[in-house]
């Protein structure tokens, strides 16, 4: 992750004007030092005002490097503020576990839409990954499209850490909300019998209502050992 942090840092910094660079450097320093979460919350919130929201122009080589360091991480379509927010989260000192968990939780509880996108995008790089299962499951219940996208599309965290029921919920939600199923990380690895059964039921329900069934559904159904 050390490597990933410097990679993202270099991408972010080359996109900033000198004023924003100084601001971010100063903020990151105070985020590394603080035990409470005030500096983190202020800088995290203010980020788009300082960085703007442009496409940071991540190269294919950089994307591959990111993926080597954090398997399955896909940063190539992130905006600059999203990238910078994730980087800032990586600067928080995890040594004091309770303090660390509390400051990240506080960000979640007062987050606006784009902040939620950044927070869920950061799940694979946060410390104590096992502690974010509940948050991730809650995110899957969100009805805000871009928030759901951040969890469902090309995010390696769910497949890596979610318990089976939450994982199955994610896949179902992806079908319900018409997401691009092929962009879910770890579909094959996490295929299971229960999911196959849920999907079969769902397919029957749609057919009964005269609605179409996605071909991907049949594939996952088979992977889990079900299907007709």
């Amino acid at each position: 992750m050390k490597n990933l942090s410097s990679l993202i840092e270099s991408i972010v910094y080359r996109n900033l004007d000198p004023g924003a660079r100084d601001w971010l450097t100063a903020k990151a320093a105070s985020v590394r030092e603080e035990t409470g979460g005030t500096q983190l919350a202020l800088a995290f919130t203010a980020m788009p005002r300082k960085t703007g929201k442009k496409d940071p122009g991540i190269t294919e080589a950089e994307q591959q490097e990111a993926e080597r360091d954090c398997k399955g991480l896909y940063i190539k379509d992130w905006t600059l503020d999203r990238l910078a927010r994730v980087w800032l989260l990586m600067q928080a000192d995890p040594a004091d576990k309770n303090a660390y968990l509390k400051k990240i939780e506080n960000l979640f509880s007062a987050a606006e839409m784009n902040e939620l996108v950044a927070l869920y995008s950061a799940l694979p790089v946060l410390a104590y990954p096992e502690e974010w299962r509940g948050r991730c499951a809650e995110g899957i219940r969100s009805n805000i499209g871009i928030v759901l996208d951040a969890i469902i599309h090309r995010n390696p965290y769910p497949a890596e850490w979610l318990e089976e029921p939450a994982w199955n919920q994610l896949v179902m939600k992806a079908f319900f909300t018409d997401k691009d199923i092929r962009q879910i990380s770890g579909l094959e690895k996490r295929a299971n019998k229960a999911l196959s059964a849920i999907l079969s039921d769902y397919a029957r329900e749609r057919q009964a209502a005269g609605r179409s069934v996605k071909p991907e559904l049949r594939e996952i159904e088979k992977l889990g050992g079900g299907g007709q």
């Binding site: 499209g145 909300t177 018409d178």
Partner: peptide, 16 residues
């Protein structure tokens, strides 16, 4: 445009 990707649950406001 954000609209276009911002889909919504189930029997929804926006699909496809």
């Amino acid at each position: 445009q954000i609209d276009q990707s911002g889909r919504f649950e189930g029997n929804s406001i926006l699909r496809g």
